[in-house]
Amino acid sequence: MKPILQAQGLRLAFGGVKAADGIDLDVGEGEFLAIIGPNGAGKTTFINMCTGWLKPQSGRILWRGEDIAGLPPRRITQRGIARSFQLPQLFTEHTVLRNLALAIAAREGAFSLLRPLLRPGWTKEAMEILRGFGLESLADTRADALNEGSRKLADIAMAVALKPRLLLMDEPTSGVAASEKLGIVETLARVLRETGVSAVFVEHDMEVVSRFADRVAVWSQGRIVANGPPEAVLADPEVRREVIGIEDAHAAP
């Protein structure tokens, strides 16, 4: 698979804590890569570096051959990399529909002063995206009135509305009710597959990982300790013990 994003030798430490200690990681065209690992391992730091929020102390991040490490977030977004957040980042005083429409406007580079945000074409597109996430009934609700799960989905929907080539998601299913989790990821995966979008997602739910990831990277103390197809990685007893926290010996009857 041809890589579109290549991280090479990324290093970043906060004080003495090494969040990235020589990370080499590729994301293929159209690939879904899951990153798993204990809290504080540096998974979010990786997303922050790929989206320009943090600058690696050394190493390169190649996007289709161009080094984007250290570019400001908006330049990276303009190149086709979008992200969603572990804690949803919504415009709290706007309705859900307006949140989506703002993302569409940003994508279209709309700097018109006089034409309305809620123009028919954008409203229609925003509603279609909301329908995909099961949020259409909440379109006119203010974002600060949403429950945690809907907030999370609206956050991802905004990233999807940017029509990226690569979508980075930080714990997309945390806070989402267990009964809705798989349905939502399924919808999301379908939308992304249809348009050939690559995805990287940090995830703690192993069922979501095993069902939707093409590949799993295990991140521990700033290093990638395992990297491969989900069935192989998730079966590795060391990964199960160190990262997922399952002692096979105890689990056995």
């Binding site: 989206t51 400001p72 977030p73 908006r74 977004t77 303009q78 979008a82 992200r83 980042q89 919504l90 415009f91 703002l102 993302a103 406007a105 940003a106 994508r107 580079g109 905004m158 940017l162």
Partner: peptide, 9 residues
């Protein structure tokens, strides 16, 4: 910050 991440300065 979200505006930044949407590409809107």
């Amino acid at each position: 910050a979200r505006l930044e991440f949407m590409g809107l300065p």
